[in-house]
Nucleic acid binder design. Structure first.
Lengths: 121, 121
DNA sequence: GTAGTGTATTACATCACATAATACATCTAC
DNA sequence: GTAGATGTATTATGTGATGTAATACACTAC
């Protein structure tokens, strides 16, 4: 499993967050499926040439947000998603998407154009 | 102009960023209109009990993003928006809103429900 | 001249982030 | 039992972001 995600050291976003977002996107886009095992902390650390503790921090937050689960001695696996269960996260995302949409409208993008973009997803 | 924005010291988001986002939201929502003067760096610092340099950092970024403009000796004013001019920011927001929408869909929120939320704005 | 404004600089303290090293517990295969 | 692989935890250290404090300068309006 080569180059599954990448890190940009110039990116001001912390490394552990880039790792977290990288895996989250792979899960959301279906590249990683439910119950699939993801690279171990040490393996990922070696591949990205960063510290295993940094990877563990990323994996820890992924688990906290319900995207993966970790089993001592076995590894880290993609958690099955239970539709509409993670209400706290859904609420948070709705607030964020509303903010972004308001800013887009303020910048002159028509609401139908925004809706059209989402319709294409 | 009392309590125009507020700061939450427990919020992990840096203070300068809370100030920036606070003003940005006031501008986007129309609470602050084009060419309106916003509180001076020293005035805002006093009201929020934080350092003027921190306020200046927030205002500096607002100016860099095109929301305000600063005039030495006069103050800081809401910049008039030119529809569809800030294409770089629009592109950035579109990528973000797509990411958020994908995550919402992954979490079980139906696309029509997301579109309905945006339609209400 | 004075008051109010933005802007800049230096120095300092705190905290987030990342690394390095090490060790422990669990699981699996042999 | 042991080795290898796995997650988990801890301590110590260094770097950079953040925020403060203090000070000074230039500009504007009166």
């Amino acid at each position: 499993m080569i180059n599954i995600i990448s890190i940009d050291l110039k990116n001001p976003k912390p490394i552990f967050e880039q790792v977290k977002d990288g895996f989250k996107n792979l899960i959301i886009c279906g590249v990683l499926s439910s119950e699939e095992k993801i690279p171990s902390v040490r393996e990922m650390a070696q591949e990205l040439a960063i510290n295993p503790n940094t990877i563990q921090k990323a994996y820890r937050e992924l688990e906290a947000e319900g995207y993966v689960y970790q089993v001592v001695g076995k590894g880290t696996f993609v958690a099955p998603v239970v539709p509409l269960e993670n209400q706290a996260r859904i609420d948070e995302l709705i607030l964020e998407i509303e903010d972004l949409a308001r800013e887009l409208i303020y910048l002159g993008v028509a609401k139908p154009d925004i809706i059209s973009i989402l319709d294409k997803l």
